[in-house]
Design a protein around this nucleic acid. Structure first.
Lengths: 135, 135
DNA sequence: CTTCTTGCAAATAATTTGCACTCCA
DNA sequence: TGGAGTGCAAATTATTTGCAAGAAG
């Protein structure tokens, strides 16, 4: 895989980001540092990075794909009101996966786990809180 | 919420389905039994059902939203080659969620968990197997 | 009747693709 | 220099919306 400014910029941005980013997020963020960058290049490279395992896709049930730096294997507790996220550090699934592989004959590649809820702030604000997120 | 043919048909289909369905899936499946049905009606009702808690959304990282009958709380082991799914019956997360709620003050609403891998058939067929699924 | 729903068509939004040109190795 | 990579614009695909006509309570 060739090394280009665009690829560096995208990977670098993802590595520095604290949460998952959409293709559009990345495109906008790189406007300044890489003005000629095309949105299609972002998509193409993200797809490529996924194939190489450098980056992971996720989609939080709103149909929009978000990408995270590959090392960033993590699970989140996300607030359905304000989208605030808390990273969960423990991953209780490795044993389960081994068991599952034995039972089913699958070769397990990975998993996605997200827990949804309402954060304390949004709870106290009542259910009629401001709509800071679409879904 | 008024009771219409369309709504019955959609809910009924979801209840009988073994796996999550896309809006398009539902639209196609109901072609015969409900010829005048519009795709936008499917979307509108699915959205409505989600709001009422009758149906749940999920998205398997391909950016396409799938819907399942509400009771159908389940987790899947899905093959990344052929999309075959195996339902997992145990859900090891309830304890974890309780712990999490105590620690973070979140009110936990639910979670999504999907485990990815390659099923025995696709493994034996080699990695260059037929592309039966996009992602 | 009156309001909630639907169907249709047109509008968005997200993502992909074709192709000529550019730039890394 | 040659082929992988890019930008642009156009094409798809998924989803949403406006509005007049239809059906449920």
């Amino acid at each position: 895989m060739k090394n280009t400014k665009q690829r560096q910029a995208i990977l670098c941005l993802l590595a520095q980001s604290h949460g998952p980013l959409t293709a559009e997020d990345i495109f906008q963020s790189l406007r300044d540092s890489c003005p000629s960058l095309a949105l299609s290049t972002v998509y193409r490279n993200l797809e490529r990075f996924c194939a190489e395992g450098l980056v992971k896709k996720e989609s939080l049930n709103d149909g929009i794909i978000r990408y995270t730096s590959g090392r960033e294997h993590g699970h989140y507790l996300v607030c359905t009101e304000c989208d605030r996220r808390i990273r969960l550090d423990s991953c209780p699934l490795s044993e389960i996966e081994q068991e599952l592989a034995r039972k089913t004959g699958f070769e397990i590649d990975g998993h996605s786990l997200t827990i949804y809820g309402k954060c304390p702030d949004c709870l106290h604000r009542g259910t009629s809180g401001h709509p800071s997120r679409k879904d």
